[in-house]
Design a protein around this nucleic acid. Structure first.
Lengths: 220, 220
DNA sequence: GGGGACAGTCAACACCCTGTCGACTCCGCT
DNA sequence: AGCGGAGTCGACAGGGTGTTGACTGTCCCC
């Protein structure tokens, strides 16, 4: 991971110019309120008035800081995104050392990172259907994971550790999609889910068999 | 498949009693309008007024037939659900004949069934986050697929065609989750997707390796 | 054939939420 | 003193939902 991120044009703080100012506190207060409320109610059940009140300002003033409710979520997502991008770290560069452990670490980090911002991620999943910007930003995050894994698979194949088969990109998409959906079911109580403590191991098992096509742990 | 469906309590036609009546036409008109409009705009962009006008009635009259916009979608989903439940057919009962072909058929039908009601399914995915009933109904559909596949995996293991490994249920959940998410990405333009014509084959490949843990086609 | 019962219909209302406008304050700077 | 911009909000316009109450037609039973 640690993939180059396309500059997201991350909702510039509309009004003010650079440097400290009272507005920075308000902006932070709005974001904090949003994150707090999202842990209690769904995104749709939070009104702009709620966010404004929570930050100690009136509703019109909210619009001074953000153009819409969605923009707040987008900013929140932007943080998670940044974290997710670095979460992979250089794990996949050191695959040859101990493939099983490295893949497990990767999947574990995926879950841990998103789990740490559970409320925000769930809200994004909810809004993704209606908001094109959130959809795009989310797709970008996924795309970077997909590419990182794709390259790792190709590297494993090159060094003879993994056999050929599906195009590495397709395989990577399928596996990452699985992880995303399983993560979602685990935290959103939406559909059949694997027990939370087993999630990583279940996914790992499918990953390893799909990539190495073998029951035995991949060769070191 | 052809699993026993829990009676869904499928939004009883509130007002009228049994037998033909003018209201049945209206109700059908509302549903038809909804399905038609969903192919053009997102669920959120369709107002109750749109549905009413489309069915040739006024907005208050709409409420005579459905308690809310969501209820319309729920009814639509109910149809898809019924279709999805029978889509599997007895495919999995005849696995021993030609496992690879049977599994492929199953995955293909999954895609075809949902693809045939693409607009409705996408709308449901969108609303799932906010509407508990849709979420539950959807979870039920998934649960039945998961169980059917789980039993098939167990049968394959019993007859010695597939080796043990993950609990069959966990494996089934993971694989079905993958299918759902990949389907979604394919049709919703949301995240990295596999080329549509390859989808079934990619998924099939992961399924077979995960279930049979072998590159070779499973023994007949 | 008069009268209840009920399907079916809608204008009008109450309500909530979003987004905007214009006027206001406060503060630093010149 | 007075200009300009950050920061603030009351009040409005607009669009959506859900409800009420009054109206029409029709069937059916006495």
């Amino acid at each position: 991971m640690t993939v180059a991120r396309t500059p997201t044009g991350a909702v510039p703080p509309r009004g003010r110019r650079a440097g400290r100012s009272a507005g920075d506190d308000r902006e932070a207060a709005i974001l904090a309120t949003a994150e707090r409320l999202l842990e209690q109610r769904s995104f749709g059940d939070i009104s702009i008035d709620d966010l404004a009140r929570g930050a100690g300002i009136s509703r019109p003033t909210f619009y001074f800081y953000f153009p819409s409710k969605d923009a707040v979520l987008l900013t929140l997502l932007d943080r998670v995104t940044a974290e997710a991008d670095s979460a992979g770290g250089d794990v996949l560069d050191r695959l040859a050392e101990d493939p099983r452990a490295r893949w497990r670490e990767l999947i574990g980090r995926f879950h841990a990172t998103f789990g740490a911002h559970r409320a925000v991620v769930l809200a994004c999943a909810q809004v993704r259907g209606t908001n094109a910007e959130v959809r795009r930003l989310w797709a970008d995050v996924l795309e970077r994971w997909v590419q990182a894994v794709q390259h790792a698979i190709e590297a494993e194949r090159r060094r003879g550790a993994a056999p050929g088969g599906l195009p590495a990109r397709d395989l990577s998409i399928a596996l990452n999609s699985m992880n995303e959906r399983v993560w979602y079911a685990t935290f959103a109580d939406d559909g059949p889910a694997v027990a939370e403590r087993d999630v990583v191991d279940v996914l790992l098992d499918v990953w390893l068999t799909a990539i190495y096509r073998d029951t035995a742990p991949p060769p070191a």
